[in-house]
């Protein structure tokens, strides 16, 4: 179970905050959105660890039909023995609340809640990621900061394989649209490399 605390500072960052003077009204609205976001969030995650091998096309995850393509992911996983594939979501209730505010003209609140939710899913992903790091440590691996489809030349299309691979539709309720965008919108998928060698708390060190 992932437990969320909410992160006001991050939410403000997503809102484009750069140290302006906040009036009482904005502060109050933000606090309400933080509270609402936390009450609506239903964080869940799934991950699997796979052995990997190099093929002509890229890095193939053994026992699956997934090959990771692109230079960036290749570089990211260079020297990795295994990799974890993870998916995390905070659920659809927040999406619905954002839509509710949008539709009824409460658009500031909609944007605030949306940014609060972005901060929440990142927090959920970080906490879930930490569990995976723990798993890696137990097996004497060190990990590197996660890498998601859509970063650099790692194709967003990879989602089409990751979602069924982790059975996300049944386990997490994540569905892709025609452009590979996930719903619930506040969901994250990522690959985490497992490396042999010395590591520290912060992850990978060569």
């Amino acid at each position: 179970m992932i437990k969320l605390d909410g992160n006001r500072k991050e939410a403000l960052r997503y809102l484009g905050y750069k140290g302006q003077i906040l009036n009482a009204q904005t502060e109050e609205q933000l606090d309400l959105c933080l509270k609402e976001g936390l009450s609506l969030a239903a964080p869940r995650g799934v991950y699997h660890v796979f052995d990997i091998e190099k093929t002509d096309k890229g890095l193939s995850l053994i026992g699956t039909d997934l090959t990771l393509e692109g230079e960036n992911i290749g570089r990211y996983l260079d020297g990795a023995k295994k990799c974890a594939v993870m998916a995390v979501t905070v659920g659809i209730a927040i999406d619905r609340a954002v839509i509710k505010y949008e539709k009824s003209g409460e658009i500031t609140k909609a944007l605030m809640l949306d940014c609060v939710a972005t901060a929440l899913v990142e927090e959920a992903a970080d906490k879930f990621n930490a569990e995976i790091d723990e798993n890696a440590r137990e097996n004497r691996f060190v990990t590197r900061t996660r890498f998601s489809p859509g970063y650099g030349d790692f194709p967003l299309d990879t989602q089409r394989k990751i979602i069924p691979l982790l059975d996300c539709e049944r386990r997490l309720g994540i569905i892709l649209n025609s452009e590979c965008l996930m719903t619930p919108r506040k969901s994250v998928t990522a690959v985490i490399g497992f490396f042999e060698g010395e590591g520290n708390e912060n992850g990978f060190e060569k």
Partner: peptide, 11 residues
């Protein structure tokens, strides 16, 4: 101002 303030004014 940052975005939520602009939007509050617009609302």
């Amino acid at each position: 101002f940052f975005l939520p303030q602009l939007m509050s004014s617009a609302e």
